[in-house]
Design a protein around this nucleic acid. Structure first.
Lengths: 208, 208, 208, 208
DNA sequence: TATGAATGAGGATTCATTCAT
DNA sequence: AATGAATGAATCCTCATTCAT
């Protein structure tokens, strides 16, 4: 009865995180309704009842999962925005290339799809997503653009709409891969898209 | 009023369309799993069993519904592409404005969200969507762009990626409204977005 | 508009019999619960609703079907019993051989199985079967046996039990084929069974 | 009363047997289609869902139930065959009397009726019944008879057919009671039938 | 804390029966 | 008399949630 009973005394406070981590995969794969808590428990390596020690309901677990997914998203955005010292002309390609690389391979596209899918049933999630991710990200970009406009770097116009012009193609590209898989011969190469779109949006596609 | 309204006669051939029409609303609103056939039936004005006269299973009804939604989508695209005689410089603003107007109010954004949401559980739907809508739409635009490049109107570059640069912001805008509602103060005005993005993508946002 | 509209004016009073005939096959094949009226209608070449012009409910149709099956059974028994002039020693082999031949190929074994199967849910059928077929048949045989006992042809004993000793193996043989099919290598040859059992029951299997 | 009756504890391993036991009554009484799982659950003293912890589907439960019923049947047969040392002349009356007593009161006749009834819908059950009960039972008897023939106790003839001559009347008698109940004035007394048929089949009913 | 057997409300599906044509 | 589209009660089955251990 000495102190080593490591079998399950192991980090008792890590449990919620482990569960959420397991849940994320399952929710992303099957959606909210399609997810069976049995499977979440199995993947988390705990019994079904254990889930209820940490989360009141399935919805609760889903919210926690989505929130954590979004907050991770958020950190990626925050980090990306740390490189905002140069001119916009330099920033945009870097930003988009980073998005292509950092977001393209991880779980983020799946999470975006999931939140998109469930946003009707979970309006609070949509709000969190909006306030903590989308608005924040757009706000950052918008600020940069407005500053650049003040410096005469960027044409007049609504900075928020410019922000969308800049980021939307990358997001679409990510979703394209997520939804149709890379099997589609139409699936855009994300790095190429980042490069070409950067040029396109900065200089236009139209030949003067 | 002499139309001898049977008020409630047999109409074997109108029924499937009526049911699909009702189902579309419910599926868009609640998703596949969240949709109760009872509600579909109620909205279609028929009994639960009647659904099974025309559709084998709930999945079947969902597929039929999504397919029809996509084919409607398709028609909108085909029509939009009928105006392809002028130069790309003239076409792009028209195209995007049309998208803003025609797609913005109807059920299409909701359908896109729904198909996005269920594409994992219904890979065949994803394929249909890809082949019959996305690839087609991209193909059309890609063709126009390549032609314009041949005429020297548009810079060198992958036409498919240019196509994404052109349409993605509109689609994002539509989804933005669909997901966050227009309450969000960040929600872009679609007409303004169409106008400004047209200019941005054609001439660039960067000031020369 | 003259009298010949033979398409369906054809024997309007034959319909019930046609329906019952079709129903018999289906009920025998699938049992009461497993039978779908749609299939009965299809096999009878009428619409589902037509069944209800002649039979109030599915149960009603089943009863009529079973009754007719039993009455046909009955006739076979009556006929078989017409040959009761000779001695029992001559009658038994003839009777059993006839049973083997006449009952073995037709629908009767299936009907027996069906009535057996549903006798719990339809006690009235069991009664009809009992009164009009079983008791009658046993009664006939019992009478013959009692007469033969009076003449000193057959040993003392309960004639009814003797009757069972005589007929049971044939019935078992029929059911054996019905239930296990003739694929079973254990399935008795009915003619051989008739012949051997006749000898066995008349003279015993024991060697004196 | 110190048995610390948890009154209602977990008993994962007792449950299947309890359920099957309850199910047997209901299936025998109502047949497969007529059985409602609600009633099985109620009789087993569990909730509907509990059934599904142990059996995948209703069919599954039915198969398990029938199989167990048959295996019980089988044991009865095996035991009955343990008395095979004496001569056939001694064995047959004992065997039939045992059948009359042991099988007559229990659930076996009902089970036989049930399996008979459902054998069309569950051909696999028919096969199990055939292979594990019928063929086995016939095989045992057949072996005894062949041995007796070798010893000159029993006349020449197909032993399998003799076996049917011996057992069929008892089985018919059991089914008679099962189907028509003992109310029928025709219902044979099973002990009397066993006694008389033993004599009949051994010595013949015919007076030399 | 952790477990997983047990629960039962909820929803898809079937099919006998009806009735407008 | 005949049709078959429409109905909705009935029932199997799932799975989030509970609770005795």
């Amino acid at each position: 009865m000495n102190e080593t009973k490591p079998k399950w005394s192991r980090r008792k406070d890590a449990r919620p995180a482990e569960i959420v981590d397991a849940a994320m995969d399952v929710f992303v794969e099957h959606g909210f309704a399609g997810t069976k808590l049995t499977e979440v428990a199995k993947r988390a390596g705990v019994a079904k009842g254990t889930l209820y020690l940490y989360f009141e309901t399935k919805e609760d677990l889903f919210r926690a999962t989505a929130r954590q997914a979004l907050s991770a998203n958020l950190q990626a955005v925050e980090q990306a925005s740390a490189a905002f010292d140069g001119s916009v002309a330099e920033l945009v390609p870097v930003l988009l290339k980073r998005a292509a690389g950092r977001l393209g391979d991880g779980r983020i596209p799946g999470i975006v799809r999931m939140v998109l899918a469930e946003s009707r049933a979970f309006p609070d999630l949509a709000r969190i997503w909006h306030d903590e991710v989308v608005a924040r990200m757009l706000g950052l970009l918008t600020g940069l653009i407005a500053a650049a406009q003040a410096k005469g770097e960027i044409r007049a116009g609504d900075p928020k709409l410019y922000a969308m012009s800049i980021v939307a193609p990358m997001i679409m590209g990510l979703l394209f891969h997520e939804v149709f898989g890379s099997e589609s011969d139409q699936a855009p190469d994300l790095d190429a898209l980042a490069a070409q779109h950067s040029q396109a949006i900065l200089n236009g596609i139209f030949m003067d």
